[in-house]
């Protein structure tokens, strides 16, 4: 069977429309606008400070809240919306290799998560960091890298999760609060298994953000991210290949 890669943009386009709706988009725009708002407050207080902003806003809000929430919503929603509506049958009853379906869904979610989170840090950076000079510009660039790597990794993790359980979103949020939040502070050893640390590590390729903990060097972070993505996509493809309709006998 020739690999009909041409269907990829079709699936991506439909997924966009499933994931974006008026009110839902509004919720996410509010979320992404928050760091920008905080940047404005920083400026109103007459404070232009790369360190304060990086730890206070980028770390605690963008990296810890906005990024994982955006990614968990899009990542679990990519297949979740099809599953909820029961439209997944139309997608699966097509002569398309399953890895292309997985790749399309993940790509759509990544594109949305990246555009939202990157726009958020860029706008925040323009307001608060650029006035701080070259350091501020570099810090903004580093934040963009962190958002891109973080979006890709989180989405890669949540897409297969949504193929295993209907409560993927809640499990994803639990993972984000407990594993990435509480446990990674208590157990520094799990840095190798923390997407937050991948994102921070990757950003050091551009600039070392003044954060409280940077545990992975850039190259390690990139390698681990790549492994995560490949393994997650493989699991998702395997799972989709074995897809069975659940439920009743009628």
């Amino acid at each position: 069977m020739p690999a009909p890669v041409s269907v990829l943009p079709e699936i991506v386009r439909i997924t966009f429309r499933q994931l974006l709706g008026r009110r839902r988009t509004l919720l996410l725009l509010l979320l992404a606008a928050l760091p920008v708002l905080l940047a404005v407050i920083f400026r109103l207080a007459g404070q232009v400070d790369v360190k304060e902003y990086s730890t206070g806003v980028f770390d605690t809000v963008s990296l810890t809240i906005v990024l994982p929430l955006t990614a968990v919503l899009f990542g679990t929603g990519a297949f979740g919306a099809e599953n909820d509506e029961g439209t997944i049958l139309y997608l699966l009853a097509k002569p398309i290799p399953r890895w292309i379906i997985v790749a399309s869904k993940a790509l759509a979610a990544v594109l949305l998560a990246v555009s939202l989170t990157v726009a958020s840090v860029v706008l925040g950076g323009l307001v608060e960091l650029f006035p701080a000079g070259p350091d501020g510009v570099a810090a903004t660039e580093a934040q963009v890298v962190a958002m891109v790597v973080g979006s890709i990794c989180y989405v890669a993790l949540f897409v297969p999760l949504s193929l295993f359980t209907r409560r993927a979103l809640v499990i994803g949020i639990g993972y984000m609060l407990v594993w990435e939040g509480a446990l990674s502070f208590m157990l520094p050893g799990i840095a190798n298994l923390s997407i937050r640390q991948y994102a921070i590590g990757a950003s050091t390729a551009i600039y070392r953000l003044p954060l409280e903990e940077t545990r992975l060097p850039a190259d390690t972070a990139f390698v681990l991210s790549a492994i995560l993505v490949v393994v997650a996509m493989a699991i998702a493809t395997w799972r989709l290949r074995r897809f069975e309709l659940s439920g009743g006998s009628d």
Partner: peptide, 18 residues
């Protein structure tokens, strides 16, 4: 075997459509 879907048309019972 997804390739078989080239020759299958399916109308599921559930009313759901995009």
């Amino acid at each position: 075997d997804p390739s078989v879907y080239r020759q299958i048309g399916l109308v599921p019972e559930r009313e759901s459509v995009y």
